[in-house]
């Protein structure tokens, strides 16, 4: 898939889509904003750092949503540090790929990835949820690198259809990735959007569903049965994949397959564990929207490493 050349320039893949080029030796590419795509091992390391950011940010803020941030770490890491074509120094670069966090309460993982990418200083993460901070409790479009204002569930997939249609009209190679929660799929608008994306054959659009099995109050199976979830996406006309959302190689393979898929949008149902990486948060609905205490933070950081 990825074509490496010495110059770090944009080149074409077999699918005709320009991809981001790596420069051997780990130095910056000629296009100074484009970082070298990470290896799976590097992605594992960045995932660890994202987990540390998530628990630290929420603990410092005293509020926030650690559970659904931790479950999405490998997905977000794979996108920001391997798949997305983006320029942290030029957040409005028209050709960039779009990552849309529809479940915007999981913004700690996004802010971590944006800071690690260089959209804003790492120190700014400490301002999360504070008054006058750019890092609101739910992602907002005015923050550098944030593509959409969220917080009200169900709107991101439609928004992604908009960015994908605009890219098609302009003839840009932009791809759009939307991260949805599984509880979020209770929203009717998700299915309005699912129908529309298939109707318009938006093969540049990918929906990743963070299938962590928990929503705000309880387990999704208790609140509203979603299964058979993959069959639903298929029935709506999507190329649908099921993966382990914590296995970086599976995440990358699925994203690659989405890129290869023509005439259909791709849905990736990523089986995950809510609160992944912190024993007392794992699979625990209490840590959907609750920050760890000081003592819990110490334990969480120790477990994450």
């Amino acid at each position: 898939m990825q074509v490496i050349d010495d110059g770090g320039a944009i080149a074409e893949t077999s699918t005709g889509r320009p991809v981001r080029m790596a420069t051997p030796g780990g130095t910056a590419t000629k296009d100074s904003d484009m970082r070298e795509p990470m290896s799976a091992q590097q992605l594992t390391e960045v995932a660890r750092r994202l987990r540390r950011h998530i628990v630290t940010m929420t603990a410092m803020a005293g509020s926030g949503h650690p559970g659904g941030s931790l479950s999405a770490v490998e997905i977000v890491a794979s996108l920001y540090f391997r798949v997305l074509r983006h320029r942290p120094g030029e957040p409005t670069w028209p050709e960039r790929d779009r990552f849309i966090l529809s479940k915007a309460h999981a913004c700690p993982v996004l802010y971590g990835a944006l800071a690690e990418s260089g959209y804003f200083p790492m120190t700014e993460l400490t301002t999360f949820r504070k008054i006058d901070s750019r890092l609101q409790g739910h992602a907002h479009i005015k923050t550098p690198g944030v593509e959409m204002s969220g917080g009200s569930l169900g709107q991101g997939l439609s928004f992604g259809i908009g960015t994908a249609l605009a890219a098609r009209l302009d003839g840009r190679p932009t791809r759009t990735y939307v991260l949805l929660g599984d509880g979020e799929c209770d929203e009717g608008q998700v299915w309005e959007a699912a129908m529309s994306a298939a109707h318009y054959r938006l093969d540049s659009l990918v929906a990743v569903v963070d299938r962590n099995g928990i929503q705000n109050d309880r387990f999704t199976s208790e609140v509203m049965e979603l299964e058979p979830l993959p069959a639903k996406w298929r029935a709506f006309g999507w190329h649908t994949l099921e993966i382990d959302g914590h296995d970086i190689s599976q995440v990358l393979a699925a994203l690659d397959e989405a890129t290869e898929t023509k005439l259909k949008p791709t849905a990736i149902i990523a089986k995950t564990v809510k609160g992944r990486g912190v024993s007392f948060m794992e699979n625990n609905p209490d840590f959907h929207g609750k920050a760890p205490s000081k003592e819990q933070l110490a334990q969480a950081l120790e477990e994450i490493g």
């Binding site: 593509e147 249609l165 605009a166 009717g188």
Partner: peptide, 13 residues
């Protein structure tokens, strides 16, 4: 609802 969010996405592009 879908239309308005799509319109927003297109406007953001």
């Amino acid at each position: 609802q879908n239309i308005v969010s799509i319109a927003a996405g297109m406007a953001a592009s």
